[in-house]
Design a protein around this nucleic acid. Structure first.
Lengths: 337, 337
DNA sequence: CTCCTTAGCAAAACCGCTATCGTGTTCTCA
DNA sequence: TGAGAACACGATAGCGGTTTTGCTAAGGAG
């Protein structure tokens, strides 16, 4: 069996309370006994038992990780993965481990996130969401448990959120195209009912208006962020009697689908039509030609989320929602004059 | 504050012990009181506190997830991600949650995995590894804690492992090429010092020998599984005075790199040279042409790992290492006559 | 009708750690 | 020199479960 605090205390000839105080840097301990006990702790590599400590303190140094929404947002998602990865690193450096809630049982109505957070005494939660969020997620945001949401508006007494400034994305793209003298631009957006994509849609429309560029209805289509929908939208655009000079898709997946359609039609990219995607997922670099895109700074998003959550947990700061600037990445599917 | 088992007991007019027995299906309880208590549990949505239960039972229903190896094997890895995702689902259905150990050095010293496993009372561990494994990983495999390794030979009293039958991969490819009358095949393998890639390398060599195909030294190169190395290897191959009819790369990333080199040389794929990769990562489908590859059944790997680990935890089965068959997926970068 | 078995439950110790509070020792200073 | 303050540390009562032990009453056998 493992050593307990009592064993350490006995070895050092002090009380368990003293050992506890030393391990938690409480003070009120003489330097001499401190040294003595510390040596034993190091020699024996003693580590306090998590569950006992957690039971006594009601803290856990654990952060719950929730992939919410009914869509398949999990380990396979190229964008959220990178964000969570960066979050994991940052939060690890702060001394937390991550608890991954399996969302299997939840759909069978068995266990709510909030209950399980309390059950585990998690110190805080990171909530990653694709589309609509379930009731169970609201429940936890409204509780006292500190939460940070990524790509969803999470509001509550101890909650906040962070996302890319999606409204700026359209402007970045349109501005770049405008500077390169292209004015006829088509748009493939995401579902209107999703928060992120509706913000992107508006951003694009606004930017076009701001530069006084024409909004041709035949060139505006809405998909579902996945490849197939981009492919189908592009088909329709190409069937029209006039082609745009450039296409901007609100997700890289859709852009990749559009690219496929263009190739089937013998369209040369970027000579005949330029193409710009959004998100900067891995596959952008392997397409032919490599896809220009608007990059979301996933690393920064994750790290910021970590620090914000830590502040929330420590309770020493009032946290406001944060928006991170997107960045245009020009590869070969668009032209930089 | 949350309800405790004592609160439930008081409400039901029984002792805490009785409530505990009912919650854990112990028997020795009359149907009448059972019903009575159960109703209260349901009404109040009572959930026992994890840390208290864990402290008393020394169990946790938690599975530790360790991304080992010094290379960047984490959320960003396209192959392991899918495996872990499938694992997560299967294990969630079995009632476990996942504890993600951050591999940062969080506690003052370098914290060992084993210590932390004990600290959290994890029931078992899934260890995912890229290349070399650290000492700390061996330590935990040699302990009593049940462990399943993926893509690494994990041996110990309560440990086992699972991986694709990498030795068969070469045979699948060479056989297919042979049936399509291509005999001159080049190979881009992985590092010799990595377990997985050395198995793949041998498998390829053996298969070539078995079909009596020539092994041209100029057509055999070794990279590091990443894109750049595939690109460079292919360059060398194309600089030779004779070209192969097909190239087989031991990872999709390298195949994608090779594809880039071929395009730069104006090589038509698959008309001039066929190309086959390995792993079936997402990007295969978006390359031009889409990449033929040898698919690892990531879903099966993850699910099997979950069931094996569960068996190991329950202690009712002796678990032997498992190898999962790879499967050839023909897309457009190779020809099926 | 008595004795013994057994089912059904309560009491209490315990898991390992923290936190409050009290006691004994030393230090300070009038 | 003695009183009070400051300091170091120990004793102990939880935290919220589980589990062993043992008591009580009902049921069955003789």
């Amino acid at each position: 069996m493992n050593l307990t605090i009592r064993d350490i205390a006995r070895m050092a000839g002090v009380s368990p309370a003293t050992v506890s105080k030393i391990m938690n840097n409480y003070g009120g301990i003489s330097e001499a006994t401190r040294q003595k006990v510390y040596k034993i702790i190091e020699d024996t590599k003693y580590q306090p038992t998590f569950s006992a400590k957690s039971l006594a303190t009601k803290k856990s140094n654990l952060i719950g990780l929730i992939y919410a929404g009914k869509i398949n947002v999990d380990f396979k998602h190229p964008f959220f993965n990178e964000v969570v990865n960066s979050f994991k690193k940052a939060v690890g450096a702060l001394g937390y481990d991550l608890l991954l809630f399996s969302n299997e049982k939840i759909y069978q109505g068995e266990s709510k996130y909030l209950e399980r957070c309390k059950h585990f005494h998690v110190d805080g939660c990171l909530i990653v969401a694709g589309d609509e969020i379930e009731e169970a997620v609201c429940e936890i945001a409204e509780s006292e448990i500190p939460c940070i949401g990524i790509d969803l508006k999470l509001e509550g007494p101890n909650s906040s959120y962070i996302m890319t400034d999606n409204a700026k994305i359209g402007m970045k793209v349109v501005e770049n195209l405008y500077l390169n003298k292209v004015k006829k631009v088509a748009y493939i957006g995401g579902k209107q009912d999703s928060l992120i994509s509706s913000i992107r849609n508006e951003g694009f429309i606004d930017a076009m208006k701001q530069f006084g560029l024409p909004l041709n209805e035949k060139w505006i289509h809405y998909g579902d962020f996945f490849e197939e929908s981009g492919y189908l939208s592009m088909k329709k655009i190409l069937q029209g009697n006039e082609w745009p000079e450039a296409v901007f898709a609100a997700s890289d997946m859709m852009a990749l689908g559009a690219l496929k359609a263009m190739k089937e039609h013998g369209v040369r990219v970027p000579e005949d039509i330029q193409l710009i995607g959004c998100d900067d997922i891995e596959s952008c670099r392997y397409s032919d030609p490599p896809l220009s895109t608007v990059k979301q700074d996933k690393h920064k998003l994750g790290k910021l989320a970590a620090y914000m959550l830590d502040d929330l947990i420590r309770g020493n700061v009032e946290i406001h929602p944060v928006k991170v600037d997107p960045e245009l990445v020009i590869r070969s599917s668009s032209i930089e004059r």
